[in-house]
Design a protein around this nucleic acid. Structure first.
Length: 686
DNA sequence: CGCACGAGAATTTTT
DNA sequence: TTCTCGTGCG
């Protein structure tokens, strides 16, 4: 039995123990949300004797699911294993894999990612002679995705979309997916709901199976996700946890109404608020509270810290983007010198593009950094190349993967030959491998040789069921390592890619170890679902967008680029709702900080190679009280060890500084001109 | 078929 | 500024 009294505070304990009906836990940032969910599951298993196999815990990311599993294992051991933990997508997929045949899905379907989807739509636009400049691919892709996340879609009603030839495009896309045996990201969820609607026995089975349902980050669920839980819960056995002030995904279809009006859909709902914060100093919370007070669409709450240290908030005005980066680097150096771990420091920005300047400055100063949630491991070219072979092998109707596999590494096969194969396969209604066998006889000798080689590889893959072995086989047979060595301009890039391939092999090995009865198809779908690298917590400064910082916390936080037009972004001015979402986003950012929070904005910034003038973000005014001040950081805030550039003398490193500001005398060791003393205003930071 | 070059666009956020 | 896409040549 769990001793909840010593492990949880009053509010948390109440949330864990409440089982008499639908429960909405409004958990502010840092109030122990994850703790409540984990303990609630442990409580259900240990105290209420509900087997973990009958509990569904929905998380926002795969990583969060994994973390929850680990924590739970520590609490209740092996009994935690059979828990259904994962994102809506992952859980739906599991259901679809078992029951998808009822919707006409072949068992070895392939999940396509954004890149595949774009390339398919691109093809279709070409076929239909639609001008891409006038009607961008992205627009069609977004609209298809939006449609698939509506009730209309699950009830097979036609989309109501006014864009040029949308129906034709959609229709062809649908057919393309059918012939290639594809489902896309959105299908995982919407097809599962279709299944619930069409196949009552399945729905009943699931309803029975899940005795308790928990949903984390509930503020970011969309309409279909709400439908999903409505279908499988019996209206009682459900607990959702979230924070309306942290809803930041409406652009992806998340509906804040889900959390604001939860009790309307589930009338018996009990609401428990968690407002005791264990993360941030009170000064930081004050700023956050003050900011979010400007939002109208919210339930309303005020966070109070349980910590004794008040923390520190500074608002800083910079001359330009470079000064901002320079400040961050210098401060970071100082903190690291004082014993703070680089991994406890984070730079948060609104758009990905802002990361570059920090990368440059940090690496110039030899401070280790990592970019969180950038390109996922499985999105990398070398990984996609290798996997494309396995994908065709697994699903011989997958023409996207075939195209990629035949082209990479280059071996004399291009679009012309590939299209022959695909067309022939459609015509004769045979799979692509069979089609290659036909085509071999009608192409030139060079092409035929390459195709035969490909066929032999496909044959060889049959010799093993070990996924790691398969990857190894592809790499070896295609001489992929040498290809990388030859074609990457820089050696270290090639080496990195080769290293990634070894990583893939070990990922495959690990997957098989953890899922002994899993198939190649299971492995491939898992790789498509994983989005950001679960890099080990190597000791590096974190560069991260505010969106992907959700759920994380850092001792010291630099929130940068708080300028009108950047944060909030220009396009959000038009509607009150969108501006409120930007404000929530800013709130999320602030509440990541534990001890020190630096909020910065730059008067000018280089955008597309042009200098742009800026005004401070409205949020700065909103979060600043009359007492706090903005510090202006001077342009030439040089420190020893900084790298600088001089018009005549080129690049060098600062050895010593005398005086301050623009007229300081700076001693520099230039790369090509040796030691010189220069007035600061003639130097540029690099 | 595959590469090289030049024009032109491009920045929200991601399961 | 940096990347993507299309064109044209070998």
């Amino acid at each position: 039995m769990l001793q909840l009294d010593i492990l949880l505070n009053e509010e948390q304990k109440k949330a864990v123990e409440y089982l008499d009906g639908p429960l909405l836990v409004l958990a502010g940032a840092g109030t122990g949300k994850t703790r409540v969910i984990t303990y609630k599951i442990a409580y259900l298993v240990e105290n209420c004797k509900i087997p973990a196999s009958k509990i569904m815990a929905v998380t926002f990311t795969n990583k969060a699911a994994k973390e929850m599993q680990n924590r739970l294992k520590n609490l209740i051991g092996i009994k935690a294993q059979p828990l259904w933990a994962g994102t809506f997508h992952a859980i739906s997929l599991r259901i679809l894999k078992n029951e998808g045949h009822l919707l006409g899905l072949k068992p070895f379907f392939t999940i396509i990612d954004e890149e595949d989807r774009t390339s398919i739509i691109n093809k279709i636009l070409k076929e239909l002679n639609i001008d891409k400049k006038q009607y961008p691919v992205k627009e069609y892709a977004n609209l298809i995705s939006k449609y698939k996340n509506t009730i209309d879609y699950v009830y097979d009603k036609d989309p109501i979309v006014s864009i040029y030839k949308f129906l034709e495009v959609y229709d062809r896309y649908k057919k393309y997916c059918a012939t290639n045996n594809y489902i896309d990201f959105d299908d995982m969820l919407s097809l599962t709901i279709k299944l619930f609607i069409k196949e009552d026995p399945i729905l009943q089975y699931c309803k029975n199976l899940f005795q308790y349902i928990l949903v984390d980050e509930y503020q970011d669920t969309n309409i279909l996700q709400f439908q999903f839980i409505k279908y499988i819960s019996n209206g009682k056995n459900i607990c959702v946890v979230g924070d309306d002030d942290q809803s930041i995904y409406s652009w992806r279809g998340a509906d804040i109404k889900n959390i604001l009006e939860f009790d309307k859909y589930f009338p018996e709902t009990t609401v428990i608020k968690l407002t005791t914060n264990y993360r941030s100093g009170q000064k930081i919370l004050d700023v956050a509270n003050k900011l979010i007070l400007h939002n109208k669409f919210r339930r309303g709450k005020n966070l109070k810290t349980a910590l004794t240290q008040p923390g520190k908030v500074e608002v800083l005005k910079f001359e330009n983007g470079e000064t901002e980066a320079l400040f961050v680097v210098n401060k970071t150096k100082e903190l690291i010198a004082n014993g703070i771990n680089p991994s406890d420091i984070a730079v948060l920005y609104r758009t990905n593009a802002q990361s570059r300047i920090f990368e440059t400055y940090l690496s110039n100063s030899q401070i280790p950094y990592r970019i969180v949630g950038n390109i996922s491991f499985y999105q990398r070219k070398e990984i996609k190349d290798i996997l494309s072979y396995l994908k065709v092998f697994d699903n011989p109707f997958d023409s996207q993967s075939l195209t990629r596999a035949l082209k990479n590494p280059p071996n004399g096969i291009g679009d012309a030959t590939t299209n022959k194969i695909i067309d022939n396969s459609t015509e004769k209604n045979v799979d692509l491998i069979t089609s290659i066998k036909d085509i071999v006889n009608i192409v030139s000798k060079k092409q035929a040789e390459a195709l035969n080689k490909f066929l032999r590889l496909m044959d060889m893959l049959k010799s093993t069921t070990d996924i790691a072995q398969m990857v190894h086989l592809v790499v070896k047979e295609r001489d992929y390592e040498n290809y990388l060595k030859q074609f990457d301009e820089e050696e270290y890039i090639a080496n990195k890619r080769i290293y990634n391939i070894y990583e893939l092999i070990s990922a495959a090995t690990q997957f098989v170890e953890n899922n002994s009865d899993a198939s190649l198809n299971d492995f491939l779908s898992t790789t498509t679902l994983i989005t950001s690298t679960d890099e080990l917590n190597d000791n590096a400064v974190n560069l991260i967008t505010v969106h992907s910082a959700k759920g994380l916390e850092f001792n010291t936080l630099f929130l940068v680029g708080l300028e009108e037009g950047l944060f909030p972004l220009y396009r959000t001015y038009s509607s009150e709702q969108e501006l409120e979402e930007e404000r929530r986003l800013c709130y999320v950012a602030i509440t990541r900080a534990k001890e020190r929070l630096y909020i910065g904005w730059a008067k000018t910034r280089l955008t597309y190679g042009k200098v742009i003038e800026n005004n401070p973000s409205i949020f700065i005014k909103e979060l600043t009280s009359c007492t706090s001040t903005t510090t202006t950081i001077d342009n030439n805030n040089f420190r020893k060890g900084n790298y600088v550039e001089h018009e005549k003398f080129g690049k060098g490193v600062i050895i010593d500084i005398n005086g301050s500001n623009d007229d300081a005398k700076v001693k520099i060791m230039f790369k090509n001109f040796g030691l010189k003393t220069i007035i600061a205003k003639f130097l540029k930071m690099i």
